[in-house]
Amino acid sequence: MSTLTTLTRVPGREAIARKGWLRAHKWLLLRRVSQLGLLLVFALGPWLGIWIVKGTLTSSLTLDKLPLTDPFFLLQAFAAGHLPYREALIGGAIVVAFYLLVGGRVYCAWVCPMNIVTDAAAWLRRRFKLQSARAPSPALRYWLLGAILAASFASGTLAWEWINPVSLLHRGLLFGLGAAWAIVLGVFLYDLLVATKGWCGHLCPMGATYSLLNVTGLPKVSALRRAACDDCLECYAVCPEPQVIRPALKGDASPIVSSINCTHCGRCIDICAQDVFQMTTRFHHRRDGHEQGTDHIVDRLGGGSARPVH
């Protein structure tokens, strides 16, 4: 894993030179529009009195009709021994159905407000070439999810909500931040100085919950033109979950990035000067014969030290 971070240049320059700035930031811009747009829809009420959505990402009511409830919060409430009203359960079912359709981790890359914070830390890390320190196991978040549910059960409270940076930040922007800025800053500094992509990629139990919902989503990133890969390693550098790329990019099987941890952020598509990656669907397995032919050559030729080693 550590060799993934041996990239010593700031990624993206070649993509910008080849494709132009706009195309090299297409998915990033779309995500920022989505993240900020959702935040704005929530904020229109408290800021301007235009009540399209009430509540927070935790549980909300849109146009006084549509209830939406975050499944991670429902899980904690279940563990704490409370069966919520039907309204919250229906809201939770709608959210679960939506993320089963689009892919669970879409929440992380396209909705979650913390993503902007951790993306900023990751960008600064690359910009100033901060060397990676030890990150915990990416599986820690699943253990943490289990521990949180156990703590919720034992304490009878929503245990993660004492410190959850995601809900503290989102709620803070709508209702008043209090001391939540300190926790958000803590996550930012952790990602900047301690562990690359430490929060979203290793720790966040909310993301872990959405990973578990990331099994049936229709849109998928695919290394469709993987034969054209020139081993520049830039996709690994920008990916929030770099371990998900290799099986699709360098494996012999489907080029679709099928890991449940892929957030569908599309940054690999932006950053690749060779246009290896595309957003496709999970059913799009086809590769054309020409590429399949060159694939083997690249595999043979590319066996040297430039290849990422895991």
């Binding site: 009430k54 429902l74 021994g81 919520p84 009878g156 929503l158």
Partner: peptide
């Protein structure tokens, strides 16, 4: 209070109402 902390999802809909 003990049950409340296990039932409230901290959404703020009551505050808005």
């Amino acid at each position: 209070e003990a049950e409340f902390l296990g039932a409230c999802v901290r959404c703020g809909l009551c505050v808005r109402a």
